[in-house]
Simulated scan of single mutants.
Amino acid sequence: MLEFAMLVIMVTTLVALLVAYRRGRQGFQMAQPESGSLYVTGVSPRPEAMGEQYVTITGNLTGPSVPETVVYGRFAWDVNQWPAIGDYIPVVYPQGKPDRWQIAHPGSRPPLGS
């Protein structure tokens, strides 16, 4: 009986490893993220502290595969380049999933504004 239980455990482990391996390989075949633009319609007030502070941004994201979609996010942002309503921010997102958007240039944000 003990031998049978060990055999079942080993087969189950092997199947789990194969499934995990297949999922990992499929992850490398995902499509490239799409580029879009976020039109800022709301932004949290600029704090008086210096350096990077948290900002909450709301806006309308548009891109090649999604119609205008309302999204929001929270980011660490340099107070000297604080976003404003009316700014356009370049973003990327997985194809068809604009709710998972990210800023396109997080390390070196382009100057914001019109």
Rank of each mutant, 00 (worst) to 15 (best):
F4P: 05
A5Q: 13
V8M: 12
V11T: 13
T12Q: 09
T12I: 09
V15W: 07
L17M: 12
L17R: 09
L17Q: 14
R22L: 12
R23W: 09
G24A: 06
F28N: 10
Q29W: 09
M30V: 15
Q32L: 11
Q32K: 12
E34N: 05
E34D: 08
S35G: 13
G36W: 03
L38R: 01
Y39N: 09
T41G: 00
T41E: 06
V43H: 00
S44P: 06
M50S: 15
G51Y: 03
G51R: 01
E52P: 05
E52N: 14
Q53N: 11
Q53I: 00
Y54D: 15
V55Y: 04
V55K: 02
V55H: 01
T56A: 07
I57L: 07
I57Q: 00
T58A: 11
L61F: 10
L61D: 04
V66K: 08
V70Q: 09
Y72D: 08
G73Q: 08
G73V: 05
G73D: 09
G73P: 01
R74G: 06
D78C: 05
D78I: 05
V79P: 04
N80R: 15
N80M: 15
I85G: 01
I85S: 01
G86M: 04
Y88L: 11
I89K: 03
I89T: 04
V91G: 07
V92A: 02
V92E: 13
P94D: 03
K97L: 14
P98D: 07
P98G: 07
R100K: 15
I103N: 01
I103G: 00
A104D: 06
H105N: 14
H105M: 13
G107F: 13
S108R: 12
R109E: 06
R109G: 05
R109H: 10
P111L: 14
S114V: 09
S114T: 10
